[in-house]
């Protein structure tokens, strides 16, 4: 479905979705990620086409091997594992954010499309509605 390794080519068209949610926060340390994904899931449940862009520390949301924390702190990995059930299949990741953190797509729990800055800019500008968490 998606190319795990190569970044999106400069001339690949990016179709607008109903909603793009940009996730910039890591799991566990705050509820930004959880409450951002909640918005994406609700929008999808309402029949909207939704995509997620992971930027900055948001890329840590996708790291393989996460688990619940002490005191029942749920984290977000289970929530992200449900994305496909909600037809949220377009997952974009900032290539520079991944590189800066020493990660590759092989470290991630879901297939993603890497975006270099020029493609990331085009993605954001193609969307009618974007929320950042």
């Amino acid at each position: 479905m998606q190319d795990d390794e190569a970044a999106l080519a400069a001339d690949t068209p990016i179709a607008p979705l109903d909603l793009l949610v940009i996730l910039r926060h890591p799991p566990h340390g705050s509820s930004w990620l959880r409450e951002g994904v909640d918005v994406a899931l609700v929008a999808a449940a309402f029949g909207q086409s939704v995509g997620l862009l992971f930027q900055g520390d948001g890329v840590f949301a996708l790291v393989e091997g996460q688990r619940a924390g002490p005191l029942g702190q749920k984290g977000t990995h289970a929530q992200l594992a449900m994305l496909e059930m909600y037809d949220i299949e377009r997952l974009w990741v900032s290539a520079s954010a991944l590189r800066a953190r020493g990660l590759t797509p092989a470290d991630l729990m879901l297939p993603v499309q890497l975006l270099e800055a020029d493609a990331l800019e085009r993605l954001v500008h193609a969307q009618p509605h974007t929320l950042l968490f």
Binding site: L19, D38, V39, V42, Q48, H129, L131, L132
Partner: peptide
């Protein structure tokens, strides 16, 4: 209210400012 109202508000208005 639920998050659905946020989704509706995004569709129904010209601008959404966070």
């Amino acid at each position: 209210t639920g998050l659905g109202q946020l989704v509706d508000a995004m569709q129904a208005n010209d601008r959404v400012i966070t």
